[in-house]
Nucleic acid binder design. Sequence first.
DNA 1: CGATTTCCCTGGCCGC
DNA 2: TGCGGCCAGGGAAATC
Length: 277
Amino acid sequence: MPELPEVETIRGQLQAQLPGTEIVDAWTFGTEKFFQAPQAIGHRITGVRRRGKYLILDLDDVEELIIHLGMTGQLSIQPTSTGDHGTDFGSTRRPPHRRAEWLLGDGRVLEFTDIRRFGRVAVVDRGEHSSLPTLASLGPEPFDETFTAEHLRRAVNSSLQPIKTQLMSQRVVAGLGNIYVDEALWLAGVHPKAKRITKAQASALHDAIRSVLDKGIRNGGTTLRDYRDVSGGSGSNQLQLSCYGRAGLPCMRCGHTIRKTTIAGRTTSFCPLCQRR
DNA sequence: CGATTTCCCTGGCCGC
DNA sequence: TGCGGCCAGGGAAATC
């Protein structure tokens, strides 16, 4: 369940290791979500950016290799010296959930493993995101100056959908998923089914969103089950969660029992006392 | 066009 | 021990 903090952690590690290297070969699992991986062959990686939960590897500043990790996607970089790969890259035996690999000019291999195949790989002209509708209509980055409390209030109040549904849509603000939405709403004291928020609530929620994401990044992400960084390491933010996954347990602020409900098809935890409608 | 629903996937876990 | 059933959930497509 990589959300913004997990993807940002990975982005930083890739940015430290990839720029300047050329992609000289590629392999793909072959199904629709991954088959574009070889289109990156022949390009040099010039930088690694992130938009929401999407990783964007700039290719010669004219194309982009876009990787979404979905629910269980993991990236790793292996040196050739491990002997992991044979001399014939194309016919190397691979683990069962490997979805794509990119052979780099210096012999290293960028590997994409994704058990449940909710991830996705795309190669597009720079900035051409129409084939990825969510990316194309993504809201502002939460740490960008264009993401303000007023933007948040206006966007939320312009729709009749519950606030959690809106925050999950990626259109109001980019990068939040189930974990950090529950954390932010709890921290701000806003009910997940609220349909209108006051200026004071918008301000509190704006700050809470930045706060929980910043904390997540500083903790190297939340590892509940599958998430690992590029080195295979776990994050530690799962030890710092205040609300997500705590249904039935006492609220860490007021002691009332955290309740569980379903919103937009997603399990939602909240404190009925701290987060009133 | 916006809102709602369904589907994609597999491993882990629970109860019998 | 084995197995059916359920759950996790981001995003895209289909439907309303």
